[in-house]
């Protein structure tokens, strides 16, 4: 008998299984209640609990139409612009750090130069900095530029109303983790392969594009999924750098606002919340293995 099985066997039994089933049910019911509520008519939601769907199944989709296009939350266009913003923020904020970190990781691993170990260690150590430490200065930088004495180092650029500050902030905050993870992978590539390519006269740029990138696809995929979900689910960076307007703010920001002010319209709030869950849930079920891998590696980020 397998050793680890022996340990587990001594723990299994009808009581143990019952415990697991009870926890699973408890863990699932709240999300199911959210979905059920989002499919019920307004009047029903306001007067009876969602568990009534089992006895009076009357399900509609109009809440989703209302919350997406009509609003009713003081914004005429509803949630749709925010959903679009979430997507328009998340995709570039995943691609930018991925590419920049892959280049840095390659340079640190294969273009050896004096001090490259130190640089790698510093980037690695920057993982300890919480986002909160960077918010105020970065916001000041985006709105007012950087000055030392009377000297302007970085001029003020008006980026308000664009995605650029959010993209930039996410890219900056993702780099330590991304560089570290990809370096782990890229530095393990076979030395012979790299040396043969250099012998053939390939430049570092060519090696990076035609050998390194294709070979480290699994690592890139793991990090991409982790980062995409991180950005999609993020509230702190979005709230600070995108504000609350339909032009740039993502769904999380809008939902947090609604949760505070319109707690009463549960049929709309639950529909909005479920809309924001759909993409993470698809990613979760379709790419669970990569997702777990990325999650384990990235658990100290932020």
């Amino acid at each position: 008998m397998k050793g680890s099985t022996a340990v587990r066997r001594s723990f299994s039994g009808p009581l143990g299984s019952l415990f697991v089933i009870v926890v699973t049910v408890l863990w699932t019911i709240p999300t199911f209640g959210l979905l059920a509520t989002s499919l019920r008519p307004k009047q029903e939601v306001a007067t009876t609990g969602w568990w009534e769907v089992f006895t009076h199944p009357e399900l509609i989709l109009s809440n989703y139409h209302t919350v997406l296009f009509e609003g009713g939350f003081g914004v005429s266009a509803g949630m749709m612009p925010f959903l679009v913003n979430s997507l328009a923020i998340s995709v570039p904020a995943t691609v930018f750090p991925l590419v920049i970190a892959a280049m840095a990781a390659y340079a640190l691993a294969w273009v050896r130069f004096r001090g490259s170990d130190t640089v790698f260690f510093v980037i690695f150590a920057l993982q300890v900095v919480p986002l909160q430490m960077a918010l105020i200065p970065l916001l000041q930088l985006f709105s007012g530029g950087a000055h030392l004495g009377g000297l302007t180092i970085i001029p003020a650029v008006d980026l308000s109303g664009t995605y650029a500050p959010v993209w930039l902030a996410h890219t900056m905050f993702a780099l330590p983790l991304a560089t570290f993870l990809l370096h782990n992978f890229i530095s393990q590539l076979p030395r012979d392969l790299m040396e043969a390519a250099i012998m053939d006269g390939a430049s570092h740029f060519k090696i990076f594009r035609s050998i390194v990138l294709p070979l480290c696809t699994p690592a890139l995929a793991s990090f991409a999924i982790f980062e995409f979900l991180w950005v999609w689910n993020d509230l702190l960076v979005a709230l600070t750098f995108a504000g609350g307007t339909p032009e740039v703010a993502p769904m999380t920001v809008r939902l947090a606002q609604l949760s505070g002010s319109f707690g009463g319209r549960w049929e709309l709030l639950t529909a909005g919340a479920f809309l924001s869950l759909i993409i993470p849930l698809i990613v979760f079920f379709a790419l669970q293995r990569y997702f777990v891998r990325g999650l384990l590696a990235g658990s100290v980020k932020g």
Partner: peptide
Amino acid sequence: SLIFLPMAVSLVGAGIIWKFV
């Protein structure tokens, strides 16, 4: 999968789910 699922959800979403509970 079902126990792990909340990990994919944003904390804002989780907050709304439980506020309703």
